[in-house]
Nucleic acid binder design. Structure first.
Length: 428
RNA sequence: GGAGAGGUGGCAGAGUGGCCGAAUGCGUCGGUCUCGAAAACCGAUAGGGGUGCAAGCUCCUCGAGGGUUCAAAUCCCUCCCUCUCCGCCA
């Protein structure tokens, strides 16, 4: 959420930003509503002041007639205040409703555009593997090795759920260990979060758990949702807190399961575990000062690259265009790994994503910091980034490391957590 | 899940209808003292909002939301959370 005062003072910039992001919001009304809001507040305060003053007199008043008069007067003020409260509630709800539709401002260097082609490839790393056979997609590889059972997943939980089996399980555990190991070396503090969160936390982070086409599963008869990413829980962790600047940045590496309804993506990526309803993810989350967020965004991107370089998976980095940023992000980079089994001759597929959300999430979640350097408090900046989304990493590993005989080489860095195993299969 | 207790400032902890945004202690910061430090003493020490050039004035906030009242940290209701005991359980 943006600050109302900021919107008022930067109407043109906000309008232009909305356009770039392909969002329509009635920002003109914000000024009107906010004027009205301030007016009500001012008038209400005058009454409250009078009421407070006369209330103080009641106790000391000995003359019963005068006392009754004071009480009657107070009663009248209260009634007026109650009416104004109702008006104010309405106005504030209206204001919030509009503000919730406005996305974050955008980094000046983020590519402007609303089409997939407007995303900018800013870097590529690694050699795409050369095969002297037609590479299979990850599911074909996995099924030949008895690593993934989609059918059983569908039977038990529905389409796009799956069972991991045998070395696929060990690979998941190894990927978790490997990514935690990497992040610990970078000073990130390890966390395992709940897999559910309250609706208002989801909203604070910028998800829309209610309404048609939501990505979010809700739990019946509760105000809880299954989380779509640990960003939600890691960001909610410190809500309504005021931090000391000296204690920032706070860097977490969190593990959770992620649940997504994938509404609105029917028929996309239907095969295998590229797009599924549940997966395990290791997520980075950082709270920091205003000054540090850009630097830390680069750090997170660097760590994501380090992880995929360590896995020996070719990738490129995308500077996401304005139309694809999503509400909270000020800037977003995606890592797309090469997936030789995708499409006709291989395609890049998103494996990680890192966003600098500046103060957009912190404002809604009310997470601030203070410092001797300035008066009052400021909202922290929050950043998030994927260390490893296990399902997608598995896709990339299975496809890039597949061999002519159907076996799959285990990336060297993972072997420590695979009891030294170098190769999966071939099965007899 | 059952029974009970409780949620107050950075922390501990008073406060059961008005003089309470809140005693006291600890902590932190500033000062006095000292060659310096400790101790002691003095002082300061929540956040948000409205208004104003500013100084200031003022409003709101004692887990959250409602209610009663001229007036609520204090009384009532709902919810959330914590603790103790019991039950169940990985």
């Amino acid at each position: 959420m943006l600050d109302v005062a900021f919107v008022r003072e930067n109407l043109d910039a906000v309008r232009a930003n909305n356009k770039n992001r392909n969002v329509t919001a009635d920002i003109e009304r914000i000024v009107q509503i906010d004027d009205r809001r301030r007016e009500i507040i001012s008038r209400k305060q005058v009454l409250e002041q009078k009421r407070n003053e006369s209330s103080k007199l009641v106790g000391g008043e000995k003359d019963p007639a005068k006392k009754q008069a004071l009480i009657a007067q107070g009663k009248e003020w209260r009634e007026q205040i109650v009416k104004m409260d109702a008006d104010l509630d309405q106005v504030e709800a209206d204001l919030k409703a509009i503000l919730m539709t406005i996305p974050n401002m955008t980094h000046p260097n983020a590519p402007v555009g609303t089409l997939a082609e407007d995303n900018k490839v800013i870097k590529a790393w690694g050699e795409k593997p050369k095969f002297d056979f037609k590479p299979k997609d990850h599911l074909a590889v996995a099924e030949a090795l008895d690593l993934i059972d989609m059918e059983a997943g569908a039977k038990v939980a529905g389409q796009k759920f799956y069972f991991l089996k045998k070395e696929a399980v060990l690979l998941e555990l190894a990927l978790i260990q490997y990514s935690f190991d990497t992040l610990l070396r970078h000073g990130y503090s390890p966390i395992i979060t709940p897999d559910v969160a309250r609706v208002d936390v989801l909203e604070g982070i910028g998800f829309m758990p209610r309404g048609e086409g939501t990505q979010i599963y809700s739990l019946a008869n509760t105000d809880l949702c299954l989380i779509a990413t640990a960003e939600i829980t890691l960001g909610g962790m410190h809500r309504d807190q005021i931090m000391e600047e000296a204690k920032l940045p706070i860097k977490y590496v969190g593990l959770s399961h992620c649940f997504r309804t994938e509404a609105g993506a029917p028929g996309r990526d239907t095969r295998g575990i590229y797009r599924v309803h549940q997966f395990t993810k290791v997520e980075m989350f950082v709270y920091c000062t205003i000054e540090e967020s850009e630097k830390l965004h680069q750090e997170i991107l660097g760590i994501e690259e380090e992880i995929f370089q360590g896995l020996g998976l070719p990738y490129h980095v995308i500077d996401t265009c304005t139309g694809d940023l999503g509400g909270p992000a000020y800037r977003k980079y995606d890592l797309e790994a090469w997936m030789p089994g995708r499409g006709d001759a291989g395609e890049y597929g998103e494996v990680t994503s890192t966003s600098n959300c500046t103060d957009f999430q912190a404002r809604r979640l009310n997470i601030r910091y203070k410092s001797p350097k300035f008066k009052g408090t400021r909202f922290v900046h929050t950043l998030n980034g994927t260390a490893v989304a296990v399902s997608r990493a598995l896709v990339a590993i299975l496809e890039n490391y597949q061999q002519a005989d159907g076996s799959v080489i285990v990336p060297e860095k993972l072997r420590t957590w695979m009891r030294g195993q170098e190769r999966i299969g071939p099965r007899k």
